[in-house]
């Protein structure tokens, strides 16, 4: 009884889930699979423990064949949001946008206005880095304690999404052991920023998230 009720619940949910979705890959109709589709967001302490690292990945599930022609979109702004006083409103943003083969970074700086519309804070250039071409060693920029990277990477996400889908669809009752990583062998477009924690304010905890915005 207990289990059948559970799987009835899962099956009903499954009816609404027909496209491949995972961490945030292809999560919604307006963005799915495009250059504004965020697949993942990470934030962690750097190798230098005085630093924090932000990672935004977009445009997931790129096969090696598709990777050679994959590129960032000059019309899409990737914006890291930092709330340092725990009201879930961004106090600082770090903006990343490509121009002519380079990724330009602005901030951390207070946004012109918080929320869903942004203008680029051109007076607050953090730095820039050449976008690493597919097949090349990672090109990184290190200046004033800030590290920057933009380019293709292995998708760091791992999940047996195939079996999850079978469970949701009511075709299976449990995961397999071992499972199968649906994201094995696929690439994403990555933007990585590492910078001193002292640039981010706050008193021990930040609330962070990433947004894509299109012109």
């Amino acid at each position: 009884m207990k289990k059948s009720k559970l799987f009835l619940g899962l099956s009903i949910l499954g009816l609404a889930c027909t496209i491949l979705v995972a961490a945030d890959h292809i999560d919604a109709p307006a963005v799915q699979g495009g250059t504004a589709d965020i697949t993942d967001f990470y934030s962690f302490q750097g190798e230098n423990t005085s630093n924090l690292v932000f990672v935004a990945n977009v445009k997931g599930l790129l096969s090696p064949t598709a990777s050679a022609s994959a590129s960032f979109d000059e019309g899409v702004l990737v914006e890291f949001n930092i709330d340092n006083n725990n009201d879930n409103v961004e106090d600082l943003v770090i903006q990343a946008i490509p121009r002519n083969g380079k990724m330009y970074f602005f901030g951390p700086v207070a946004p012109g206005t918080a929320g869903t519309s942004s203008t680029i804070k051109t007076n607050n250039l953090l730095g820039s880095v050449s976008i690493t071409p597919y097949g090349s060693q990672a090109i990184t920029s290190v200046q004033s304690g800030v590290n920057l990277f933009a380019g293709l990477r292995d998708d760091p996400f791992f999940f047996d999404f195939g079996q999850y889908s079978e469970i949701i669809a009511g075709n299976a009752s449990s995961f397999n052991n071992p499972g199968t990583d649906t994201f094995a062998g696929s690439n994403v477009m990555s933007i990585v920023v590492e910078l001193p924690k002292s640039m981010l304010g706050g008193s021990g905890t930040l609330n962070t998230w990433v947004e894509t915005k299109r012109k």
């Binding site: 961490a23 945030d24 890959h25 589709d37 203008t119 990433v210």
Partner: peptide
Amino acid sequence: GTYTQQDQMGRPAINT
């Protein structure tokens, strides 16, 4: 120009 929000993410798999 003005850039308008398309996607947002904090924790993994929440929207999904």
